[in-house]
Write a protein that binds this DNA or RNA. Sequence first.
DNA 1: GATGAATGAGGTTTCATTCAT
DNA 2: TATGAATGAAACCTCATTCAT
Lengths: 205, 205, 205, 205
Amino acid sequence: MPPRPDVSEQRTAQIIEAAIAVFSEKGFDGATMDDIAGRIGINKATIYLYFDSKDALIRAIAEDIFARELTDLQSARDMPAAAAERLTAFYEALIDDDAELLPLMPILYEFYALGLRRDDVRAVLSGFIRRSAGLLEAIIRDGIASGEFAPTDARAAALALDALISGTTLHWVYAPDEVDINAQLRFAVRLVLRALASDDAGPGG
Amino acid sequence: MPPRPDVSEQRTAQIIEAAIAVFSEKGFDGATMDDIAGRIGINKATIYLYFDSKDALIRAIAEDIFARELTDLQSARDMPAAAAERLTAFYEALIDDDAELLPLMPILYEFYALGLRRDDVRAVLSGFIRRSAGLLEAIIRDGIASGEFAPTDARAAALALDALISGTTLHWVYAPDEVDINAQLRFAVRLVLRALASDDAGPGG
Amino acid sequence: MPPRPDVSEQRTAQIIEAAIAVFSEKGFDGATMDDIAGRIGINKATIYLYFDSKDALIRAIAEDIFARELTDLQSARDMPAAAAERLTAFYEALIDDDAELLPLMPILYEFYALGLRRDDVRAVLSGFIRRSAGLLEAIIRDGIASGEFAPTDARAAALALDALISGTTLHWVYAPDEVDINAQLRFAVRLVLRALASDDAGPGG
Amino acid sequence: MPPRPDVSEQRTAQIIEAAIAVFSEKGFDGATMDDIAGRIGINKATIYLYFDSKDALIRAIAEDIFARELTDLQSARDMPAAAAERLTAFYEALIDDDAELLPLMPILYEFYALGLRRDDVRAVLSGFIRRSAGLLEAIIRDGIASGEFAPTDARAAALALDALISGTTLHWVYAPDEVDINAQLRFAVRLVLRALASDDAGPGG
DNA sequence: GATGAATGAGGTTTCATTCAT
DNA sequence: TATGAATGAAACCTCATTCAT
């Protein structure tokens, strides 16, 4: 914690923002501290006043990004609406964020790759995935409780939905011409909803 | 006709194998040519007799790995069995390959990340994803033709299944304790099969 | 306004000086960045703060050296004296600079060789040669205008004089025992002066 | 001396020829043994059957090239003609060899540069320069003996002529548009001949 | 808080040279 | 005689990190 929190916090945020942009473009290793500093017109050394190391910066970014993503999911969960509607709302928010989300994809995969090698990053990612599925599960559980969905393995369904979403995003990124992301995500949700509505016993059965 | 058997192909394969192992462990950037050479007890410079550059080596690995993966899928497609059975067989092969597949995951995400920045890698990945979905689609289409599945958008279903598989693998890798990969994949297939069996119009509808 | 005086220019000059010495001794290819850095007790990487690459450094040296040489010639041209005197003064300065000039010879030939392969270096050399002959030509032209020399092809005479000087320098460097550089240069100038004084039509005739 | 001289000599010559071409194009350091071997379709290692090292090859080339040049000069000296004619014949042969000589210029300067650092090369070059001036001197001396030229310092005149020739060649190479090599060389010879014809005492006087 | 200057460590790539065949 | 394969040594260049100002 640097002495003057007001300025510091701004700078911290500014650096993180710049770093996200640069890392997205060049990858964690391809990007240099100079690239990041240059993007906001400060000196490379200044970054070290706010972050201990490049690794620490990367870790901070992981926390920042995944916290933001969770926020979206959380507000979907907390919407006063039927469960099916809330799930739909969630993926629609995802798509609408198109302009925001797409540029994050490179860094996302960068994190998936890095997390398998760095424990601190792995922890952040694991937590995110767990919580992400947890939020979807909560919505599904609400739907079951309210009788909107048939009783089923909410956890498995949540995992499947989450998997569908991230898998579809991958298609979107790597074969954009072939995938109508919007239709495909809608299809995915419907797929899961139908399973929930039926009496399927889920993977645990 | 040189007296000695052509050792080139063996060396090439040997280097690729070593490189896969090292890249998985340290990432493309973290791994050095020395690491790779050291792993098979040759000199760093020898690698350059077989690959023009580190980048070329990475690219060769991409082709190698994804070709192997496709082979598995292809043999599933070509099995003389009902479509549902063939889909099931495919993901079961995936799981059985556990010991082979799991160590490849880091490199896979490494490729996903890199592909968004390097065109040659991107081309290999795009092709893989496209062909992968194409093979699943073929099986599904067979099922529809044989009356095993209800008429539906085979492409969308294939994409969904493919997405489910890669998304589930991600869970598996990052939250292994929470995910029974076997059950979860079975669940995924059943999910899609049910959609196929019904009269749902798919994402295009 | 940084508190410290701008040390950049000094460093730049220091590096160029060291590089000239090292390049003279070992040739462009034989010399390493480490050699150069070591000579002034700095780290190799520091050189890269001032020059983009070894090639850029070499190019900077070309500009530096040839600019210096031209300065000498220019001051000879601008002397308030008869043309013949000014020409004589020039080669005498050349000889007096003995201690400075001789060590530069290796690097000069290095440049002659390199310039035939590298366009940026070639441009510097071409310009130098052109301007060098141009300055001599100006002096000769003055002499003709003042009636000191007979009307003749001033350009051809200048080129001949320039050629004589560089050719003689070559002898000097490679057969120092056999050539009295001082006498030989004086002879060369006299040779040209006599041609100028006569009514010879020059090479164009 | 390899066992079978017939094949060996051919190979040796073939390698030298290839090396001259490659060295001219890329410089001594820029050229690799592979470049040279590749140019005649042999294996790099084969060169080592004929030359001990790259340095030895370079030295052999120096001897080869300068011997050839001297041959031209020698035949000019031995022509049954007046001295003035023989000098003229010499520079004319030089110009006619245009197509042969011009491509050798890069390697020539390469040698001038290298000779200042490598004793074996320096010895070859020194000898060449000395002998070259010696041949010109012989012709001039003949001219003096026959009364064709006025008595003068033949050595100084020869050196001046030699210097003029090599200096002019430099202009030619670096400012080809500005120099009519043919006219300029003729001018140079005339310049010297006039000096010889007169009663000038030369530099030694 | 900020930076210009510097560096140590290291990575990719190149290549003359060797040697078993 | 010829070569495919291999390598040790080294060079250029980069960059995260430090520190005096």
